[in-house]
């Protein structure tokens, strides 16, 4: 490829401008977590770190038991992500590789339900969960996210690239369908599975409405609930530094996990989603 559209310096300049634009809000989040109200609400935006980081952390720990909150979020997110990813990988793989009675119907139902907004199904979902006694449990928060239609859709796209010849060869060797999936398909699809898992992870980590209606025990609360309780409480003054400390400590770890997975698996995933 010898297309010399731009000189390298210009390319780097454009890319670096992009870098600054995309990284800035994260940088500001971290800096503001070290400031107090006077600085954050002050006349001009201030990018110098202040001395209040520990004080802000201490406040959110004392007021909201933040370590427990982080643990709750982590538990729900990790368990939910593992289960959901396994279930949806299976389903996506089957939808891509098998034809059976009703497979079209299922696919169409999945596609239609992707268009129904979450608010619309909140009350019915809560109703069902309450009938099976799952309110105020972690399971009640995890279960509604398990059958993620987006993940199934993505996994179906990925799995279509998985060569059917491999399956046929394995069958000739006498392997069962489950063995083929677990021993051959899963390893081949790992980068795609990681990508799907990452989006599911984000979904659980940031989910607000389900935990709000399901969890009735402050000791089970998750990070988005605490953020809402802080910002929406019109009865007590808000410490913006403490809020930023929560934002920073909840966003940055996820960003780091993402970057780590990136280097580990190279592929960015949605890559292979679109053929």
């Amino acid at each position: 490829m010898k297309r010399k559209i731009f000189r390298p310096t210009i390319i780097y300049l454009v890319l670096i401008v992009g870098l600054v634009v995309f990284a800035l809000p994260y940088v500001y989040m971290i800096i503001a977590a070290t400031q107090n109200n006077a600085t954050i609400l002050g006349e001009k935006i201030n990018f110098t770190p202040g001395p209040y980081f520990m004080k802000n952390l201490k406040e959110i720990q004392e007021k909201y038991n933040y370590v427990k909150v982080l643990w709750n979020s982590a538990f729900i997110t990790i368990v939910g992500t593992i289960l959901s990813t396994f279930i949806t990988t299976l389903a996506g793989y089957v939808m891509a590789k098998y034809r059976f009675k009703g497979s079209n119907l299922i696919f169409n139902l999945v596609m239609i339900s992707r268009m129904v907004p979450g608010f619309a199904v909140l009350i019915p979902t809560f109703y069902i969960l309450s009938k099976v006694g799952l309110t105020n449990t972690y399971a009640g928060v995890i279960i509604p996210g398990l059958a993620s239609t987006t993940s199934v859709f993505m996994m179906r796209q990925y799995a279509q690239k998985f060569p059917t010849e491999l399956m046929e060869a394995a069958r000739i060797d006498g392997a069962g369908e489950w063995t083929i999936f677990l021993k051959i398909a899963m390893p081949v699809l790992t980068p795609s599975i990681i990508t799907t898992a990452l989006l599911t992870f984000m979904g659980y980590w940031n989910s607000y409405l389900m935990p709000l209606v399901i969890l009735s025990d402050s000791s089970k609360f998750t990070i988005p609930l605490v953020i809402q309780n802080m910002t929406q409480n019109s009865y007590d003054p808000l410490n913006y530094g403490a809020l930023m400390a929560i934002l920073a400590t909840s966003v940055v770890p996820v960003v780091l996990i993402y970057m780590w997975l990136q280097t580990k698996f190279k592929s960015n995933g949605i890559d292979s989603a679109i053929k």
């Binding site: 009350i123 809560f126 309450s130 009735s216 025990d217």
Partner: peptide
């Protein structure tokens, strides 16, 4: 149980 007033409170109790 810490529930912010206004909309979050409504969101919390109406499904129940």
């Amino acid at each position: 149980v810490d529930v912010a007033p206004n909309v979050p409170m409504v969101q919390k109790i109406t499904p129940k």
